[in-house]
């Protein structure tokens, strides 16, 4: 109970918000973006934060999920759930085949390789007009039904996204505390040392790469059905970089750090709209200031601060009790 206390509080807030404000723009429109971005950031954090493997191509898997849903339902007439399964299959094969050679690379070279992968997929979305609809994308996806229950309003979508996001967060928290999670952080710490301890580092890295790609893929399918529309620019390398920024902004290696980072980066542009032409400038400045003063990430920094204060108080109490 105690281990997951934060998770329960977080779930409660997430699920109560739309009940309190069922028709609020920030909840049912911006909220959807926030929820999907949290799922993506948390899945990326598994790879980046726990296993220490940077990826600048996460948006590609997100996009492949979205496009699979769009193409298989509209062009080939499959049911949404079959299309999602196809998407997962494609992403599984692609990420599995690529994981070994790509994850052999390190640091900036790994960043380059994942970036390249992301861009190649994006070029495919733009150029293969006959299949993908080119830059204008594909619109008119059918409504998704869960157990015969159609998801056709923003409010219903909120709950679907929220559920998916909470499952992702729970999985991430559990992985971190599991044997696999400890193997991951060993790989993060030092790959050679991990190998010495008998961890098959290539296998561990490859598994987490595939797993995080699959989560992004499902997120993409859901996103496509909710938006009713897919177009390439939602899956460009800019979005991949944005996801990396979310993870680092909140605190690399912390699930809730990714949650906080995703929340801030999704909500900030909405709040900055009023500044019109100054929006870009202010956005950049805020990003810089947070990273300069809280380099370990917003969430992690605050958590550490609270822990530190609690420790101080404890010390004081101990001192008082003994004197």
């Amino acid at each position: 109970m105690k281990r997951l206390l934060g998770f329960y509080i977080f779930s409660f807030i997430t699920l109560v918000l739309p009940i309190l404000f069922p028709d609020n723009y920030y909840v049912t429109v911006v909220g959807l973006t926030v929820l999907i971005n949290i799922s993506l950031a948390v899945s990326l954090n598994l790879l980046m934060g726990y296993a220490g493997q940077i990826s600048l191509g996460h948006a590609a898997f997100f996009g492949l999920g979205a496009y699979s849903s769009a193409i298989f339902t509209i062009k080939y007439g499959f049911s949404p759930w079959t299309a999602i399964t196809f998407g997962l299959l494609i992403v599984f094969l692609l990420s599995y085949i690529l994981s070994r050679p790509i994850l052999k690379l390190k640091g900036h070279y790994l960043a380059m390789a994942t970036l390249g992968l992301g861009i190649i997929v994006h070029i495919f979305f733009v150029q293969a007009d006959e299949i993908t609809g080119g830059p204008d994308g594909i619109s008119g996806l059918p409504t998704l039904s869960i157990f015969g229950f159609p998801i056709d309003t923003d409010l219903k979508w909120y709950f679907v996204f929220a559920l998916f996001m909470l499952i992702t967060v729970l999985l991430s928290l559990n992985i971190a505390d599991s044997r696999a999670g400890r193997a991951l952080s060993a790989v993060h710490g030092s790959e050679i040392a991990a190998q010495m301890m008998g961890i098959d580092t290539a296998k561990v890295k490859s598994r987490i790469f595939v797993f995080s790609a699959l989560i992004a893929c499902i997120a993409g399918s859901l996103f496509a059905h909710q938006q009713n529309f897919v177009s390439p620019e939602s899956f460009s390398f800019f979005f991949s970089i944005e996801l990396v920024t979310m993870v680092v902004l909140g605190g690399l290696g912390s699930t809730f750090g990714a949650v906080v980072g995703a929340f801030i980066l999704s909500i900030l542009p909405e709040l900055l709209i009023v500044f019109e032409d100054f929006e870009v400038l202010i956005f950049g400045a805020i990003l810089m200031v947070i990273m300069i003063f809280l380099p370990e990430g917003l969430f992690v920094a605050i958590k550490n601060k609270i822990a530190y204060l609690a420790f101080k108080r404890y010390q004081k109490e101990v001192a008082n009790a003994t004197s």
């Binding site: 940077i54 970089i241 990396v244 920024t245 680092v248 902004l249 690399l252 100054f278 929006e279 870009v280 400038l281 202010i282 956005f283 950049g284 400045a285 805020i286 990003l287 810089m288 990273m291 300069i292 003063f293 380099p295 370990e296």
Partner: peptide
């Protein structure tokens, strides 16, 4: 000023800087 920043954090700072300079 970002004394405790790791390489990754510094890279994010430069991303922020690029957005800022573009703005």
């Amino acid at each position: 000023p970002a004394k405790r920043a790791t390489v990754v954090t510094t890279i994010i700072i430069t991303i922020g800087a690029s957005i800022f300079l573009r703005g």
